[in-house]
C-alpha cells in the first residue's frame, strides 16, 4: 500500500480549477519529484497533502490518515508530515536551535535537554554544527534552508514535503541544500518535492511527475521520462526534441 495516496483530487479558486482530478501514489522511501510550469498546480497539490490547502473532491490519505475529510485531526496528521518552504519561514525571534526545538517541546512535550540533544545532532547532520545559537538573520539563505529542513526532521516525519526549496537561493547556495536532501533520500526518507532542479530530479528521484494544466500529464521513472518524453509538452518543458 502506498504511503501517500492521492485520488482524483479537484480544487478550484472560484471559477478557476487548478487541480483537475489528480491521482498520485507515493510508496515508502520513494523520492517523488514534481515538475511543471508555474501555475500547473504542483505547489497547490503539495500543500493539500498537509492540509494547508483544502480541496473540493477526491481524497488524500497519508499513512492511512485521511486528509481534509474533517474527521482526521490536522494536528495529528502534521506530526507525521514535514514541510519545507521556498522562503524558509524560520522564526526570526528564535535561534537556529530554538527553531528546531520549538515543535518537539511544545507539541510533543519532549524534555528541553532531550530536544536540545536532538536539535544539535540534526544541525550537525545538515552541516551546521556550532550554529545552534545563531539567529536566522545571521545565516545565509542556504544555511537557513538547512535549518528549516532540520526543524521539519525534528518531528520525525514519515514523509517530507519540499516546496521549491532551492528557488529562493543564490545559485552557489543551491547545492549545499540539495546535498542534504540527497542524503535524506539515501537514508530512505520518503520525499515529495516540487522542484525546478532537473538534474536533481533525474539523479535522485525515484519517480518523476510532470504536471500540466492541473493534471498529471506524465509520470514514471525519471531517467526514462527525461530520455524519452512521451508527450510534446514534457519534451518542450525539459527542452529535448521528441
Amino acid at each position: 500500500m502506498s504511503l501517500v495516496s492521492i485520488r482524483d483530487v479537484r480544487k478550484s479558486y472560484g471559477a478557476q480549477e487548478v487541480l483537475k482530478g489528480v491521482s498520485l501514489d507515493t510508496g515508502r522511501g520513494d523520492v517523488v519529484a514534481i515538475i511543471g510550469r508555474s501555475g500547473s498546480g504542483k505547489s497547490t497539490l503539495l500543500r493539500c497533502i498537509n492540509g494547508l490547502e483544502t480541496y473540493q473532491s477526491g481524497s488524500i490519505t497519508v499513512d492511512g490518515m485521511a486528509v481534509g475529510d474533517g474527521k482526521t485531526d490536522l494536528r495529528t496528521l502534521r506530526r507525521h508530515v514535514g514541510m519545507v518552504f521556498q522562503q524558509f519561514n524560520l522564526f526570526p525571534h528564535l535561534t537556529a536551535g530554538e527553531n528546531i526545538m520549538l515543535a518537539p517541546t511544545v507539541v510533543v512535550k519532549e524534555q528541553k535537554g532531550e530536544a536540545r540533544a536532538v536539535a544539535e545532532s540534526l544541525l550537525e547532520k545538515v552541516g551546521l554544527a556550532g550554529k545552534f545559537d545563531a539567529y536566522p538573520s545571521q545565516l545565509s539563505g542556504g544555511q537557513q534552508q538547512r535549518v528549516a529542513i532540520a526543524r521539519a526532521l525534528a518531528m520525525r516525519p514519515t514523509v517530507l514535503l519540499c516546496d521549491e526549496i532551492t528557488s529562493a537561493l543564490d545559485p552557489e547556495l543551491v547545492n549545499e541544500v540539495l546535498k542534504v536532501v540527497e542524503r535524506l533520500a539515501s537514508e530512505g526518507m520518503t520525499l515529495i518535492l516540487v522542484t525546478h532542479e532537473m538534474r536533481f530530479a533525474r539523479d535522485v528521484g525515484t519517480k518523476l511527475v510532470f504536471m500540466h494544466q492541473g493534471r498529471v500529464h506524465e509520470e514514471g521513472p525519471p531517467k526514462a521520462l527525461f530520455g524519452q518524453p512521451a508527450t510534446p509538452e514534457l519534451a518542450q518543458f525539459i527542452g529535448v526534441q521528441p
Binding site: R78, F91, V106
Partner: peptide, 21 residues
C-alpha cells in the same frame, strides 16, 4: 503568512502559534 504556515505545518495549535510564534 509564512510564519503561520510554518508553525501550522509543525502541528502547533492556534494558541501555541500565537504564544510562541
Amino acid at each position: 503568512k509564512g510564519q503561520w504556515e510554518a508553525s501550522e505545518s509543525l502541528a502547533l495549535s492556534y494558541g501555541e502559534q500565537m504564544r510562541h510564534v
